[in-house]
Structures are given as structure tokens and as C-alpha cells.
Design a protein around this nucleic acid. Sequence first.
DNA 1: AGTATCACTGTAACCGGTCACAGGGACGGC
DNA 2: GCCGTCCCTGTGACCGGTTACAGTGATACT
Lengths: 352, 352
Amino acid sequence: MDATMIPTVPTSPGTGRKRPTIRDVAREAGVSYATVSRVLNGREWVSPESVRAVRDAITRTGYTANPHARSLATGRSGSIAFLLTEPQHLLFEDPNFAVLLRGVAQALSARELTLILMIAASPEERGRAVTYLSGGHVDGVLLVSPHSGDPLLSQLVRAEIPIVACGKVLGHETTISSVAADEWAGARSAVEHLLAAGCRRIAHIAGPQDTSGGVERLRGYTDALTAHGLPVDQAAIVHGDWSHESGAAGMRELLRRVPDLDAVFAASDSMAAGTLPVLREAGRDVPGDVRLVGFDDSGLAATLHPPLSSVRNPLDRISEEMVRLLGELVAGRTPLSITVPTSLVLRESSPA
Amino acid sequence: MDATMIPTVPTSPGTGRKRPTIRDVAREAGVSYATVSRVLNGREWVSPESVRAVRDAITRTGYTANPHARSLATGRSGSIAFLLTEPQHLLFEDPNFAVLLRGVAQALSARELTLILMIAASPEERGRAVTYLSGGHVDGVLLVSPHSGDPLLSQLVRAEIPIVACGKVLGHETTISSVAADEWAGARSAVEHLLAAGCRRIAHIAGPQDTSGGVERLRGYTDALTAHGLPVDQAAIVHGDWSHESGAAGMRELLRRVPDLDAVFAASDSMAAGTLPVLREAGRDVPGDVRLVGFDDSGLAATLHPPLSSVRNPLDRISEEMVRLLGELVAGRTPLSITVPTSLVLRESSPA
DNA sequence: AGTATCACTGTAACCGGTCACAGGGACGGC
DNA sequence: GCCGTCCCTGTGACCGGTTACAGTGATACT
């Protein structure tokens, strides 16, 4: 059927017909191209008639500005990079990450900024990422919970790119802005809730201690205990890497070391999820024998059996603040670290 | 809107010292800037000495090309958009999506293309996305399983942007390239495996029938049964929406309708995971009493108890092919639809 | 020797915007 | 009538690359 049909338009993709430029609009509107530019950016005085003429011409021609020409002229790219250095963030293990990404995309879209996603897992990818970013081709970089010692960090800092991290970056407070949930308070409230429910042998599955999240959540746990006059038993603290598997392994270890535990506070929902099959196998009922609280309130929490109590990590708020802070950095303000409050969401795994 | 835009103050941190340009490199190397450009693109004759001089000058100055200037001159942006029209893709529900994104990022990075992520959920976001993309500011668009009737599709097609979709787009075969897994064959092999293991009452939890995935997987199931001379019992087929919950609900329904079932083929791993607690509660052992096979072989499959057999959705392959096809479209080739093979991964939930 | 070819290089004109600067009316004050 | 101000507008010089075109010297060919 289409073999005999001859297309009416020479449709070579991209080369088709030229897109209208600012000069075309100017001619159409009967003004100079500088005036069109002024209307577009709206920061100088232009007569109402000119504005209207230009507006009309724009809709008539279907003009949209060429962002590359604009970037070249202004030196500002209008795009920011969202850099991931750990591929597992993108995998099943970390559903929070997806929520954060969604929030950031939304906040950027609202500011008419484009989001460039860079996943730098392999050494080559990391190298390419550093070169690209150091080249000053984006206005700023958003980082997800970077490890403090990562050489990538110092390279980016040296390149003087505005950076905002999600989670405090120890040792870089003066060069990198950061937005973090008040994880200490969240962890503390989780443990206080368990104490109020009558638990006295509360164990903790901690996160990596080279991330602020891991440190803060552990600190919240110990502080809650000591504030209530309870001893901090090092045997009741095991360390995981946020993952499901490490949660399972940690739980097995805890059952061996502290068989009389009556509650577990896990530093992530994934790790909390990992404890469930282990507890079930050991014949411990949740929440009957052991109360369980996780952290992040990810999508995972509500789908577990039993549904998991968790500390809500306000990721929508965090992503919004990250973009705001990045805007300020780009505008020349000094780096700033802020925290946003968390809240405890109670579900069946630890009834009030 | 202007209030939220990043101000145009020229004192951004990056402006400290100016980045070297092609002219700086030329001066440093003692050649003209055209020669530097030639070395960079390497497509014309340049003397070995000049090449070496330029190379040295580049490393000495730490030069990196300004992509915006390049785009402006060449008319090619060097970036492609990854467009999501359904926000739930990014959420916990669809771990496959993350794997696909990862693969695409990798494939693009290897080709020195940048990935612009656009999430167009709200009507405003969708509008902005269409304007941006229609403006010709990216070289092409990658779409994830779009619904055939989506007006966004026809708008993009009208704007003559190269598009590659993941999953066949019914009705747009001649304008949009697509890459899809051979889901029919995958589903069929899963059911054949269950038949070979001796199962005779095989139920199916199907996906939404307005997606090609849902349709194809169901068709593979029925075709496998009829090919083996078995009747297709409509009572043994329930419909879900890919989610964990719908899997659980479907399983409850199946146990009521087909109490003597000896196997379940679920159209997604999430739905398969949802069946597990229901089966356990009903006292059915997996795989002892009921064999279970999922679809996608997501990260989820291996972490379940028991580990889940699943049809492997070759997302790495799909992402690679999507990027390849997009490259061909940009180069002017006509749209093409291809399928890539799936394979069955056996685990404890359905031993051979 | 004259000339064609080859290998290489430099100049200049773009690409499509932004913005500093100069200039031109209209108006008010002297 | 002259001047200064206030708005508004156009010209032209960038931004940092690519590339068409012209040119140069060396070598090969006639």
C-alpha cells in the first residue's frame, strides 16, 4: 500500500524544514531581534504594542528558543546533573531513590531546568562524568548520599561546580550544600516509641558508618536509650549495608547474641524486610514477640507482612530543598547545610 | 515564574577563572583554531606534528569542548531524552524500569551522549515536555511502554522527532521504532516448563490487557496449553495490574475457583511475590504443592523465599537496542520494530 | 619549466541567542 | 528654544565551536 505512495514532504528527520529563529520572529513582528530577546527575557522596558506583536509572531511561527545558543551566550546551561555513583541506588534495593529522583525532576521542571542523569558506576563512567562535569557544562550537580572519602567528590569540589548533596557530607560542609532529613530525631522517636510500648531489649541494625545516615540513625538509637536511663549494649548493635540480605544476616547474628530481644530498630526498610523471614523461621512473632521499626517509609513498608512501622523520610521535601539550594549556590551564595524533620509512621509491626 | 528562575548574576562560582577555549589551545599549540577543531573531530588531514602539538596543548590547558557551542554549530545536540509519562514507573512497583534506565544510561554514556530525564506526569509537565522536545533541542526520544492512544505520541510524531519505544506501539509502526522482548515465547516456555514438570492444572495471573505485555504473556500461556492438547479454563485465569497486592488478591481468587491447581504462572514477579504469603496461609507449599513461575526476573525474584523461577526480560539487551535504533533514526534510516529473545531462569519455586 | 595534484593550514562566515551601547522621539522644566 | 530625562528600540560585538573556501608549499607528472 505504501510502496506506491510518495511522501508529500521531504521528511529527512531533523533536516526537514528549518526551525524559526529569533530573527524570523523579529521580521514577522516588525521589530528588531533584540526586542524579541527582551520580550523573551522580560527584564527590560518594552512597549506593550511590541510585546503583543512579538507574542503574536511567536505563536504564529511556533518559535521556541534554541537552548544551546542561549547557553552559549549566557554561559549558563539551564541544566543540572543528577549524579549517581552507586548503581545499586537504581536497583530494587533502594526504592527511596526513585522517589527522590521523581521529586527532583518535578522541582527542576517547574524551574524550567533540565535534568541530566549520569550514572557513574564503572571507572570509565566515573572518569567521563568528572570530565563532563568539570568542563562546566552543567550549572550544578546533585549528589545522592556520597561517601565522604570518594575521590570524585574532591575532584568536583576542585572544579568549583556548585554541588548539593542529599545527606550531610562529612568533611565538606564548607564547600558542598546538603539537605538531610533529621535522621537523629527520627531514629530517636522510633526508639522512644518502642520504649513507650514497654520494650526493654531493643536491638539495632545499623547502616554503614561512613555515611551520615548510618551514623545519625545509630546515634539517635543510643541517645534515646541513655536518655531513658537504659544501658547501650554493643552486642545488641549489628552493622549492615542497607540491603535486604544484610538485614537478614544481621538478624541472625542478633538472635544469637541477644536471644531475649523484644524489639528491633533497623536503619532501613530493606534491612527490616530482611529480618522478617529470619524472625519467622526462629518462631518469633512480629509484633507479638518482637516489635519492628524500619526507616525511610519506602513503598516497601506498607506491603510487608506485617506492615512495617517506619520513620518517614520526607523525600519530596528534600528534593525540593536540594533544587532550591542549588539555585542559591549558582547565584553565588555560600554553601549551606539544612535538615528537614522526619515523622514516625506506625503500622502493625509495632502497634502503639 | 521568573521569581523562581536562577538569576543571571555573572558572579557564579564557576566564573572564577575562565575555561580555556579552542583559541587558547590554538595559541598554546602554535596553530590556528581551525586546526584544533580538525584534530578534535579527526576527519580531515592534519600533519602528525600538528596533531601532537594540539594534543599536548589540550592536556596542558585542560581544555574540554563546550557542548553548547558545538551543538549550535552542528545542529546536533548530543543529548537524548528519556521520557516517562507514567510516574509509577519510577516507583517501587516497577523495578524493571530502573534496570532499563540503568542500561540506557550506560549505552548512551558509551556513545558520549547525555541522557535528559523527563518525567511528564501532570498536564503541565506533559505540556512542557512536548514543547521542549518539539523544539528540536534533543536528537531523539526514548519512550517507555507508551499507551497507543496517548495524544503525546501523535504530537511528537508530528514534530518529526526520532522516537524509539520500549514495547510495540500499536498503530505507530511506521513512524516509531520499537524494541520489545519476545514475551509470547517467554510465557510459552514458562508454561511448557511447568507442563514438563508434570503440572496439569496451571493457573495464570495475567497483566492488564491494554498493554502489549499483558496480552502477549496471556497469549503465550493459552498457546502453550492448547499446543499440548490441554483445555484453557477461563476460571484458571485472573487479572492483575502487575502489583504485589493484585497478585495476592488474584491468588486468593484462584484458590477459591481452582482449588486443585498445581502451578501458577504470574505475568510479573511482583504479582508472583504477592501469591507467596497467600499460598503459605492456605497451607500450600511452594514448590511442593504448587509450582510458581514469574516474569521479568527482576531483582526481586532471587530474594524471595523460595527463590522464584522467572522469565528473564533481557532489559540490558533492550536498552542497548533502543539506543542503537535511535542512532539509526537520527542518521536518517526508517523506523524499525524488533524483538529480542527471552529465557527462562529456573529457581526453587519450580525445579526442573 | 610549467602545471596538476596532494597534503596541509588559515581566514572568515556562520549557528542563534544575549546584552552593552548608542541613538531617537516625547515630554517637561527652564 | 534648548536641554535633560525617560522610555523604548536597533546595531553590532560577542559566546565557542564547525566548516566552506582560499591559499601555500612540496612533490609528481608531462
